[in-house]
Design a protein around this nucleic acid. Sequence first.
RNA 1: GGAGAGGUGGCCGAGCGGUCGAAGGCGCACGCCUGGAAAGUGUGUAGGCGGGAAACCGCCUCGCGGGUUCGAAUCCCGCUCUCUCCGCCA
Length: 430
Amino acid sequence: MHDIRTIRDNPDAFDAALARRGIAPLAAGLLARDAARRARILAAETAQADQNRASREAGAAKAAGDTAAFEALRTLVAEKKAEIARLTAEAEAEDAGLRAELMTIPNLPRADVPDGADEGGNLEIRHWGTPRTLGFAAREHFDIPGARPGFDFPAAAKLSGARFVVLRGALARLQRALAQYMLDLHTGAHGLTEMWTPVLVRSEAMEGTGQLPKFAEDSYQTTNGWWLVPTSEVTLTNLVAGEILEGAALPLRMTAHTQCFRSEAGSAGKDTTGMLRQHQFEKVEMVTICAPDQSRAEHERMTRCAEAVLEGLGLPYRTVVLCTGDMGFGAERTHDIEVWLPGQGRYREISSVSTCGDFQARRMNARFRPAGGGKPEFVHTLNGSGLAVGRTLIAVLENGQEEDGSITLPEALRPWLGGKGRIDASGALV
RNA sequence: GGAGAGGUGGCCGAGCGGUCGAAGGCGCACGCCUGGAAAGUGUGUAGGCGGGAAACCGCCUCGCGGGUUCGAAUCCCGCUCUCUCCGCCA
């Protein structure tokens, strides 16, 4: 959420930044609303101050035995009371209205984000690895002979419908191994704290990270009001909601492996075959809570943590910085990591690492007390996939496929695969 | 799901319907003391919003929301969360 005072101080800069995201100017409307709001607040508080004073004087008059004065003041308070009720209701309505509007406005892109209308404007900032030369026609993950027995889409359709998968045998094992490998890498070499969090959350949590109020249709809600998290960014980030952290304790770097649930509203027809885009999938997420002067370095660090997962698995990737038109709601800068998928012959997103500045912190009211003392300030929040486990499974299968239909698995996974290193053409882990 | 107890500042913990944003303690910060420290001692120490160039002033917050009252941390009602016991349960 944006700070109305910042907009007040520099409305042109606000509108200019919005324009980079293709949004029409909003500052004038917001400031008119803000002026009305403040006028109401002032009126309500002035009336309240009048009442408080009259009440004190009434008490004094009563103590002094001055009945006439007491009765007069009592009448005055009663009058003020009705006035206050009306004025505060108006003030609260204005305040809520302004806040509601601010809650729907996306974060502003940082100056170093490239302009662009869509993903065509993204810029590669680095790449790693070279796609194998296969010498045969690459298959997509669901078409590789060794993988086919492990994917049971008909069974998933029977249980749940489209965009679900049942994994069987070697593939179920492989997915588990991938998640364990990622968690161990992040908690070990990268020093993140492993967390385990709920996947059902209150609306407040979804508002804190920006999924609500604007994107309700993208998530699922239970009959009693809980939301299924679309990513554990929601739980990990909201851990600090409403808190005032000690500056010396920052940065907090966390990771969690959870199920994620997305309605995929609006992506009808996209990626309908295979398990690339599912309503339920696994993700190892990373979240960092830090001081404002730490967030740039933390963003780079987190990006490197995600890239390290792919490097450990020997999967070629490229990292792009998203242009203004392709960024998500809460981000001020995003790095997408795209893994090479031989079956599609192109790079596909496997991780998205964003720094949100104080955008989420304002929504959550998450602050820290600077190390040297002083007023609490809003923290900065960052989140990134490290990585999407299902998509990593796809990448491992497609990149490891052999002409005979078998699949060579990354060496790095052996500790979690009972020492085994390939899936044969019949689908057995050997 | 049933019964009971309880939510006060960074923490612990008092609080008669007004003088209470709140005693006291701990912690923390700064000073005194000291060769330096400890101990001792003094002072300070919540957040948000609004007005103001500033000094400063006002408003709100004792889990949340209502009510009673001239006046509520204190009385009443509802909700919520935590804890204990019972029930159920992976």
